[in-house]
Design a protein around this nucleic acid. Sequence first.
DNA 1: AGTGAAATCGAAACTGC
DNA 2: GCAGTTTCGATTTCACT
Lengths: 160, 160
Amino acid sequence: MTRQDDPRPLDEVDRTLLALLEEDGRMSNAQLARESGLAESTCLARVRSLRERGVIRGVHADVDPATVGRGVEAIVAVRFAGHARADIEEFTAAVPDLPGVVSLLHVSGGTDFYVHVAQPTAGDLRDFVLDHLTTRSGVAHAETSLIFDSRRGRRPLSEG
Amino acid sequence: MTRQDDPRPLDEVDRTLLALLEEDGRMSNAQLARESGLAESTCLARVRSLRERGVIRGVHADVDPATVGRGVEAIVAVRFAGHARADIEEFTAAVPDLPGVVSLLHVSGGTDFYVHVAQPTAGDLRDFVLDHLTTRSGVAHAETSLIFDSRRGRRPLSEG
DNA sequence: AGTGAAATCGAAACTGC
DNA sequence: GCAGTTTCGATTTCACT
């Protein structure tokens, strides 16, 4: 298994590699080595180590939902009735497997979860919320906000 | 420039390639070709086309914020006083450049923006909200929710 | 931990289908 | 739009430091 909690602190070279891969996850090992000033073999070992320690959780293509027939994006704020642990855990386990779910955030405060979804049409969005969220055990309320525009942060997380 | 709005519909092979790259953005062209049943040259051209058409917006390493010294994640719901276009546009342009911003969503409803941030400590989070969000022109209110847990959707967006 | 050289394998361009 | 060939570059291992 991969270790998620190795306490070894990151040095400057690690942060450089992370910033490069956050920007372009398909950059070749050879180019990573050049830009970070490492030998290729060393660079390969560093990146593997970052993965094994759970610093790099994965590398994923960012697909524009609108171009794959999912042009309607929304954030659904879900509030629970009680806070039965079993309900919360089942929700957390089940929702990421539903089609069109981009991400699921469990948060503090008046809202318990934010669900980021992408659906083909407004009707599909309504069906998704009614069929898969509000009907779920423990869910008291779901409030849907359409996403007009979304953008990634432009700074590498691994910086200063 | 890359075209963002080519209306050409995606076929099954495109969707297969997208699903593979959403899962593992570092998969080699050779392996993509094997798994999709294409010749390598064809596969290369297909992936390039998906990028040029804006279907693949980028490929990015997913870095665990906690491992790079940003263990405090939050969603900040921002509400504007009026809805002056200039304020909205300036907010949209400026916030993604702030350190620790993961993503920015402009949404409909009572909240105008959701800002996903990752900061080193609770104090840094407070400073971020007070210094960079609530002081910004047009901002009426910011409500911060700590993120207990976050997970990606497990289905490729490009499916079904 | 980091390196350099060597062997294997992949990328990218080009050809013809 | 697809497959075979070739050239060039990248990946990975290993012996050494």
